[in-house]
Computed example of a mutant assay.
Amino acid sequence: MMYGSIEAGGTKFVCAVADESLEIIDRVSFPTTTPEETMELVIQFFKGYQDKLEGIGIGSFGPIDIHRNSPTYGFITSTPKLLWQNFDFVGTMKKHFSLPIAWTTDVNAAAYGEYAFGKGKGLSSVVYYTIGTGVGGGAIQEGRFVEGFSHPEMGHMMVVPHKNDSFTGNCPFHGNCLEGMTAGPAIEKRTGKKGQDISPDDELWDMLAYYIAQCAYNTTLMLSPDVIIFGGGVMKQRHMLKKVHQAFEDLMQSYVKTPDLTNYIVTPELEDNAGTIGCLALAKEAKIHL
């Protein structure tokens, strides 16, 4: 008995299969090109395990349609990736695999991975952000994703510019939103360098920490979660978490008494595996609740 995972990112697709205990048996990665090319590789990978698969979990870049009664449920909708706009992802998979398919955003999948097996294990309320090529957020309350007419787009919350920051933002929709100020492309646009090539002593990191701390501040006041997890390449900078903690304390001014920040604002325990593990766990849940 096996479960499948598709972590569908804007740059690459990561596909995996795991056993009943969700131990990964095989994993492959493909560049995200056209739906025709990429999905052909995805389908061929899972065909090799078709006789043993019990379910597949998909965490996709978005926006996506999450409402089961919608005529476009399972579609990637108004994505900036033009070739993928209005693509019927779940329907395409269903043509080849008669299996339960769990469908959510890539960041929701990562949130679920941490909720089930990482820093959120045993907690009732978990919020996860990824700060990398883009910025996205997912929230879980008592095992359910926090959603309404659609899934959250937390990465586009507005932030107050740092007093020393003249950068106007990189988001084509909102300018200086969280993604527009902190994502990898924003760092490159403002400096001409990738984050890993910038000195830890550069003032840029204090500015980014200020924006990420605003995200944690907003999240705390809106949702009061048990933990806020920040993943993605930007947070792999070892000095960032301490800077975010300090900026958060400066912003909060003790207005809300949170858990100790070393346990409250954290990085992922599952690191880059959070999305894959989350998709596998959701696939198993989909099979159980069929």
Rank of each mutant, 00 (worst) to 15 (best):
M1D: 01
M1V: 12
G9Y: 02
V14Y: 04
V14S: 11
V17M: 13
A18Q: 00
S21Q: 06
I24T: 15
D26R: 13
R27A: 03
S29Q: 15
P31C: 06
T32N: 12
L41Q: 14
L41E: 12
L41N: 14
V42R: 00
I43P: 04
Q44R: 14
F45T: 08
D51S: 13
D51C: 00
D51F: 03
E54C: 10
I58C: 08
G59H: 02
P63T: 00
N69R: 09
P71Q: 12
I76P: 04
L82Q: 15
W84T: 13
D88W: 14
G91H: 07
G91V: 09
S98T: 11
P100K: 09
W103R: 06
T104S: 10
T104G: 04
T105W: 05
V107I: 15
Y112N: 07
Y112G: 05
F117V: 03
K119Y: 01
G122H: 10
L123Y: 01
S124E: 00
S125W: 01
V127T: 02
Y129I: 11
I131D: 02
T133R: 03
I140Y: 02
F145E: 00
V146E: 04
E147W: 01
M154Y: 12
M158F: 05
N164A: 06
T168I: 01
N170A: 15
C171R: 01
P172D: 15
P172L: 04
E179G: 00
G180V: 11
E188L: 12
T191N: 05
K193C: 01
K194E: 05
K194W: 07
K194Q: 04
K194N: 01
E203V: 00
A209Y: 10
I212Y: 00
A213P: 00
P225E: 07
K236M: 09
R238F: 03
L241F: 03
A247I: 04
A247K: 15
L251A: 01
Q253D: 13
L261E: 08
I265M: 06
L270G: 03
A274K: 05
I277C: 08
G278E: 11
K284A: 06
K287H: 14
L290R: 12
